[in-house]
Each structure stands twice: as structure tokens, then as C-alpha cells.
């Protein structure tokens, strides 16, 4: 006796794929809305302007080529963030990335007094960067961060906790 029921629908990051879509943003509006956000995320993961620019460009190419129909702007934003995280992880897995990521030296900065923190964030182990950045910079809740990164809420909480501990130790100069 065979059951030919279809597999359950795949959800994009836990977000429903139904609902009336709004008109997709053209490139200009999409970049103005999300370009700096994607670039910041890529800098946190990769620490290098050239690599962050490559990731940003590729993320928008994918947005224009492969994106699904978005329910709203927030849906589009989360989709872009997840694509950017995946692109950064692909870069980090390459052979030439085995050493720890450091912030590119000589970077022109806007807030020199916070440069030390920026360096410490870039130097975090990869698994803590996404939760720390999405929660503290983009303002996502633990649950929302988990949806974007495909992590459970407890895992997000634990990575936030450990990421904060590492940052505090680094800023206080402790080993």
C-alpha cells in the first residue's frame, strides 16, 4: 500500500511562502535599503573590504536573479541576510581562509574610539558572528535570529552569551 502524498512544503527560513507579494524593489531602491546592511555583515565575517564588496555584489545579483516572491520588505531583507551569511561562509571555507579572520589594517574609520571593538568582533569565531551581529546591529530578536541562521533559540542564546564573553575578555585585555 503506497502513500503518494507529497513532501511537506519547504519554508524559506521558517517564513511562510504564501501571502500577497508586494511589487519587488528595483535595484536602486533595494541597494539603498539593504546594500550597507549586507556590506556590514560581510565585513564582520570577512574583515576585508574587497571580499565584503564581492559578497555584497553577489548577494544583489542573486536577489535579482533567483529571489522568490517576497511577502513584504522584511521578508526580502531576511532573505538577503541569509544569502549574505551563506556567501561569507563559502568564502571562509576556502583553503586560503584557514587562518583566523582579522580586520583589514589601515581601514578608514568613522569612529576611531570604537575601532577596537570592531576588530574584536571581526576576530570572533565564525559561529558567534551571525548571532551577535543580527541581534545587536540589526535588532533581531533571538527567535528571528534563529530563523535567519537556521539555529534553535537556545543555540542562539548560547552563542550570544559566549560571543559577549569573548568580546568582553578581548576588550578587557584578558587572555
Amino acid at each position: 500500500m503506497a502513500d503518494t502524498a507529497l513532501a511537506p512544503p519547504i519554508k524559506e527560513g521558517g517564513l511562510p511562502m504564501d501571502g500577497a507579494p508586494k511589487a519587488a524593489l528595483g535595484f536602486e531602491a533595494a541597494y539603498d535599503a539593504y546594500g550597507p546592511m549586507v556590506y556590514r555583515l560581510a565585513m564582520v565575517y570577512l574583515g576585508c573590504r574587497a571580499d565584503a564588496e564581492d559578497v555584497t555584489q553577489e548577494a544583489f545579483l542573486r536577489l535579482l536573479r533567483r529571489a522568490p516572491a517576497f511577502a513584504d520588505g522584511e521578508h526580502e531583507k531576511r532573505w538577503l541576510l541569509r544569502v549574505a551569511v551563506n556567501l561569507c561562509r563559502d568564502q571562509l571555507r576556502g583553503f586560503w581562509r584557514r587562518r583566523a579572520v582579522e580586520l583589514e589594517p589601515g581601514l578608514p574609520v568613522r569612529n576611531p574610539e570604537s575601532l577596537g571593538l570592531a576588530e574584536a568582533i571581526v576576530a570572533l569565531p565564525e559561529q558567534y558572528k551571525g548571532p551577535i551581529h543580527l541581534h545587536y546591529c540589526e535588532g533581531y530578536s533571538v527567535a528571528e535570529t534563529g530563523e535567519i541562521l537556521k539555529l534553535g533559540q537556545s543555540a542562539v542564546k548560547m552563542r550570544l552569551k559566549r560571543g559577549r564573553e569573548l568580546l568582553r575578555k578581548e576588550m578587557e585585555g584578558q587572555p
Partner: peptide, 15 residues
């Protein structure tokens, strides 16, 4: 660390 301090650090990452 709070959001304000974090975002100030992230302002250094402007494309």
C-alpha cells in the same frame, strides 16, 4: 555591550 555601542563600531564598516 549594548546595541548603541555595537552600532557605533559597525559605523566603521561603511561601503
Amino acid at each position: 555591550m549594548n546595541e548603541k555601542i555595537y552600532r557605533q563600531a559597525m559605523e566603521n564598516f561603511t561601503p
